[in-house]
């Protein structure tokens, strides 16, 4: 077996207890939250017997630990249960929504890595006015909350200027195919992706700037400069290449933050992903869906971190994957 494969398998085994912990904590947290799904199902003024019947049907009459044991054993059999409200399997509901969320999150991630790394490197290398401008902008970017930014962007670009749609992922009423469909999705994706990316662009800029500044003080930079190669090559090929590791770490670590951002962004832009599903499900106390999304979310974060670990090995030849 190749060392990389051994590494991946070993990591995946290590992740099992982590996922178990995520399930336990979220199960308890969701139940600790006030509210009761039965009243949402049968209405506040329902008959006592009605309520009791609903509780029995959902298994909510059993003691919490018993519910937990049932849930865990189902999860390990691959069964995430049924949504209380949508009477559909949770797994199906989530899997339908994953592509939209991944599209949004990966686009935001790509944009922020690209812009953030370039801006951060320029800020570090140029110093002076360029640095001041970029650093100030990144502070502003970091300080803006998603939900507020989303609404402002929506007002400016969709309401006032009308250049982008108000929400959704595709234009309703058109049956676009192929390239037209693709363009339509991009058109709808632009504003939410921008909203989600801004914090990350700002943060990636800051991290890259610091990391490149640090790399530029290293001795091998003197060697590179003493060769008489262009300064741009010194910065990008020598300094940035060494500075990328913290940036990649941050990007991987930040997948979780982005998923959280996606919840708010999807809600504002009516983007049909996991985020808006989660928002609705929390509001309606649809426990199985909430738990299912947390499990999927943590798996995504864990996989992103695995990817980061693999990237380390590629970026830094001194690191051997074990």
């Amino acid at each position: 077996m190749s060392p990389l494969l051994v590494f991946i398998i070993r990591r995946l085994i290590q992740y099992i207890p982590m996922i178990l912990a995520v399930i336990i904590v979220t199960f308890l947290l969701v139940r600790l939250a006030p509210g009761d799904p039965t009243y949402i199902l049968v209405g506040e003024v329902g008959d006592e017997s009605f309520v009791r019947a609903a509780r029995e049907r959902l298994g909510l009459d059993k003691p919490l630990y018993e519910q937990f044991v049932i849930y865990i054993s189902n999860v390990f059999r691959g069964d995430l249960g049924y949504s209380y409200l949508r009477s559909e399997p949770v797994a199906k509901l989530i899997v339908e929504r994953i592509p939209a969320t991944l599209l949004l999150v990966l686009t935001a991630m790509f944009i922020s890595a690209l812009i953030g790394i370039i801006a951060g490197t320029i800020a570090a290398a140029k110093k002076g006015a360029a640095d001041l401008t970029l650093s100030t902008l990144s502070i502003v970017g970091i300080s803006i909350p998603y939900f507020w930014l989303g609404q402002i962007i929506l007002i400016i670009f969709a309401v006032w200027l009308g250049v982008f749609p108000l929400g959704g992922m595709i234009s309703v009423g058109h049956e676009y195919q192929g390239l037209q469909y693709f363009i339509d999705v991009i058109y709808h994706l632009t504003l939410p992706a921008m909203t989600l990316a801004i914090f990350n662009i700002a943060f990636t800029t800051k991290i890259t700037r610091g990391s490149v500044l640090e790399a530029l003080t290293q001795d091998y930079i003197l060697t590179a400069r003493a060769k008489g190669i262009p300064e741009s090559r010194v910065v990008f090929r020598h300094a940035l290449r060494n500075a990328l590791i913290p940036v990649v770490t941050y990007t991987g670590f930040n997948t979780g933050v982005l998923l959280v951002g996606a919840i708010l962004t999807e809600t504002v832009f009516a983007w049909p992903g996991m985020g808006s599903l989660l928002y609705d499900s929390i509001r309606l106390r649809d426990y199985p869906v909430v738990l299912g999304i947390f499990i999927y979310g943590s798996i995504i974060v864990i996989l992103a971190n695995l990817l980061v670990d693999i990237l380390y090995g590629i970026l830094d030849p001194r690191i051997r994957l074990r």
């Binding site: 001795d219 091998y220 008489g228 020598h238 290449r241």
Partner: peptide, 24 residues
């Protein structure tokens, strides 16, 4: 000056541990 460096004046540095780029 960049054209002078490396081409007309070369420099050997002190510490081989830190003066080479570790990822190249």
């Amino acid at each position: 000056m960049r054209k002078v460096r490396g081409r007309r004046i070369g420099m050997v540095f002190q510490d081989p541990m830190t003066f080479l780029n570790p990822v190249m």
